[in-house]
Amino acid sequence: MTTGILGKKLGMTQVFDAEGKVIPVTVIEVGPCTVVQRKTAQDDGYEAVQIGFGANKAHRVGRPLMGHFRKAGKGAFGALKEVRIAPDSALAAGQEIHVDIFKEGDFVDVTGQSKGRGFTGSVKRWNFKGGRASHGSMFHRAPGSIGASAWPSRVIKNMKMAGHYGNERVTTLNLKVVGVSPEKNLLLVRGAVPGAKNSLVFVRHAIKKGN
């Protein structure tokens, strides 16, 4: 089996556990993903599968890509992703991968594209404190000093300043799987995952938990 699968973030809610405690969960519609291509050490130099997720309209796909999809025989996909697998894996093009590769109590890593925040000040982007709002304060949300004058007489590299924030690839590690619903293809993980609702996410077994 693969270690990861593609899905769609549906949003957050809460569930009650066996003890009646409230658990904040993110609901992810995971899979089913289709193996579009099987890569082997012999042909490609490494062992992997390319998985496709989310139906796409045929007229939105270029002809070369459509020809690639045709080999799997399951129509066009909206997203493709390559996942490494063990060399002895029996996965072949056309086979489906479902959410049941995860079970309750597992730990997963979730990768997504974080929400874009545009040009952002240093308070929001770097959690600077900022100054007080009133009583003659002239230091509201300004970054403060960015370096000395005599030496080094320049701004050192990677200084935390205002700029573009968000809309980048973010991975949240070690999220606990609270529930799996194979019939609805739903995965419930504890806590927040990167990205907006309905955005594409990649879920894999947590690498730092020995997977």
Partner: peptide
């Protein structure tokens, strides 16, 4: 009904 709403309903 969205899957999320359905899930929430099952908790009610």
């Amino acid at each position: 009904m969205s899957l999320l709403k359905e899930l929430e309903k099952s908790q009610i």
